[in-house]
Structures are given as structure tokens and as C-alpha cells.
């Protein structure tokens, strides 16, 4: 979707500098700075639309991305949002989810998930808090679907967050929700002491 043009001026200047320093021996050396290879998103004079990156044929499936597993790729089982996770929840997955949540979700939803991120403070309509009862009661697959397809004013994050990372984000979201509703009796005395400090 983006094109990058390279400015040719520095190449000319480089050639002058090299020619001054090394005389005729350097003549032609700068040709190799820009060979016929195309860099990602570079502009093209060959194709009519000016882009070297060709649009994908509709229906193209990247290797390894075939949607054979409904639960994993849509968050649904038999067409209904599932609350179960299609991946194993591990500490590593939660760490990854926290990292991705903070990168992609926190600008609006805030690091705590209460919907007061910086972009909201700058005027973006405030999303519901993840801690409200109506949002908490949604099944895990629902969150996966929102990340994939967007919701309301939220655009799809499918281009930015790969499927497995989306599940990591949903898992972290569950941890975030849990963090506000833990019964005191379920904690060890050491944990309680840490919290009261």
C-alpha cells in the first residue's frame, strides 16, 4: 500500500566525492550502489500503477495460513464464538500478549484496559472498559473476532497482528480482567502482603 522513492541526488554527490578522492579509478564505482534489484515497496517505472509490489490475486493464501481450523482462525466453533482457547496458555504466551497489547491496543484502551489510552485523551471516541460486565462476559472468540475484523470505530488489526499473536493478546486480556476481580481469599499471604505494601 505504500511506495518509497529513492532520491538520486546523493548518488551523484557520492560519485563526485569519490572521483575527487580517487580520480578516474573510481569512475563507475557508484553504479553498484543501485543495481537492478527492487527493494520492498520501491516505485516502478515498469508497471502502469507505478508500484513494484504487485497486488495479490484475490483469494491468495500464504503458505501455512490456510484457514483449515475454524476455532484457531475465526474464534468460532460451528459458527458460534467459543470461550475456549485453541492454543495452550503459557507464561510465554501471556508475555507475548502483554507486549503486543501494549503496542497495538494500549494507545486507545490504555495499559489497564479501561479505555483511557492516549489516543482517547486526544479525542478518539472512548471504547468500553474491558472490566465492564458487558465486555467481561464476552467469550474469548469474540475478542479474537474484534481484533480480526474491527468493531465500531475500531479498524481491523489483522494486517498488523498475526493470528497466533491475536490469541496471545486475548489471553493477556483475560489476565488483565482477572487482575481486578480476584477474591482476597484466593491469594497466598505472601501475595496479600505484597499488595498491601
Amino acid at each position: 500500500m505504500r511506495m518509497i522513492r529513492t532520491r538520486t541526488l546523493p548518488g551523484t554527490r557520492r560519485a563526485i566525492a569519490l572521483a575527487a578522492a580517487f580520480g578516474v579509478f573510481a569512475a563507475g564505482c557508484t553504479d553498484m550502489y543501485d543495481d537492478a534489484r527492487i527493494k520492498p515497496l520501491q516505485e516502478s517505472t515498469f508497471y502502469a500503477d507505478g508500484q513494484s509490489s504487485r497486488p495479490l490475486v484475490e483469494g491468495t493464501v500464504p503458505r501455512g495460513s490456510a484457514r483449515t481450523d475454524e476455532h484457531f482462525t475465526t474464534g468460532k466453533i460451528n459458527g458460534k464464538f467459543a470461550d475456549a482457547f485453541p492454543v495452550e496458555i503459557t507464561a510465554g504466551l501471556l508475555d507475548r500478549g502483554e507486549d503486543r497489547f501494549n503496542v497495538f491496543c494500549s494507545p486507545c484502551h490504555g495499559r489497564l484496559g479501561d479505555g483511557t489510552g492516549m489516543i482517547v485523551r486526544r479525542g478518539f471516541p472512548r471504547p468500553n472498559s474491558f472490566h465492564s460486565d458487558s465486555v467481561r462476559s464476552k467469550p474469548a472468540g469474540y475478542y479474537f473476532d474484534v481484533i480480526t475484523n474491527g468493531f465500531g470505530r475500531m479498524y481491523s488489526y489483522a494486517p498488523s497482528i498475526p493470528v497466533e499473536d491475536r490469541w496471545a493478546v486475548v489471553a493477556y486480556l483475560r489476565a488483565l480482567q482477572l487482575s481486578r476481580r480476584v477474591e482476597a481469599g484466593a491469594l497466598t499471604s505472601a501475595e496479600l502482603e505484597k499488595l498491601s505494601r
Partner: peptide, 20 residues
């Protein structure tokens, strides 16, 4: 305009490593 038309935005590359 880019979003409406699907035509990409153009940017001038800031870091251009030699191709070799």
C-alpha cells in the same frame, strides 16, 4: 485520498543502503 482511491502514498526513502 490514498485510502479512498487505493493509490499508495509516496515517501522519500531516508535510509538507502547500497545494494551490495
Amino acid at each position: 485520498e490514498s485510502y479512498r482511491t487505493g493509490r499508495p502514498l509516496e515517501w522519500i526513502r531516508v535510509h538507502d543502503l547500497p545494494d551490495f
